[in-house]
Amino acid sequence: MLFAILLPGISMIFRGHVFKGIVCGVLHLTVIGWIPAAIWAVASYREDLAEQRHQETLRILTQQGRR
């Protein structure tokens, strides 16, 4: 998460959000835009973690339903 705060655009690109990463990187280039870009990157990171948890839960529930 520290990476998302320090380099928000690059952290988004590494997580597969290329277009969002480019827009966030452009926003990051301005001094005023760095704070919103960092908040956006952290929120995106947290959203990706929540999606992973959701997918894992669905996988487990699907496996239990087959029994």
Rank of each mutant, 00 (worst) to 15 (best):
M1I: 06
M1H: 11
L2P: 03
A4S: 12
I5T: 02
I5N: 00
P8F: 01
G9T: 01
I10E: 13
S11V: 01
M12S: 14
I13E: 10
F14Q: 10
V18E: 03
F19E: 07
K20A: 12
C24Q: 13
L27D: 05
H28Q: 15
T30G: 02
I32Q: 07
G33M: 03
G33V: 01
G33P: 05
W34L: 08
I35A: 11
A37N: 04
A37T: 02
A37R: 03
A38W: 01
I39T: 01
A41P: 02
A41S: 15
V42E: 07
A43V: 09
A43D: 14
Y45L: 11
R46G: 04
E47Y: 09
E47A: 15
D48S: 11
L49Y: 07
L49K: 12
A50T: 05
A50W: 04
A50L: 11
E51V: 12
E51C: 05
Q52G: 10
Q52M: 12
R53T: 04
R53P: 00
H54N: 14
H54S: 14
Q55S: 10
E56P: 00
E56C: 01
T57V: 05
L58I: 12
R59F: 06
L61D: 06
L61Y: 05
T62Y: 06
T62N: 10
Q64R: 14
Q64H: 13
Q64M: 09
Q64C: 03
G65R: 12
R66Q: 15
R66N: 12
R67L: 13
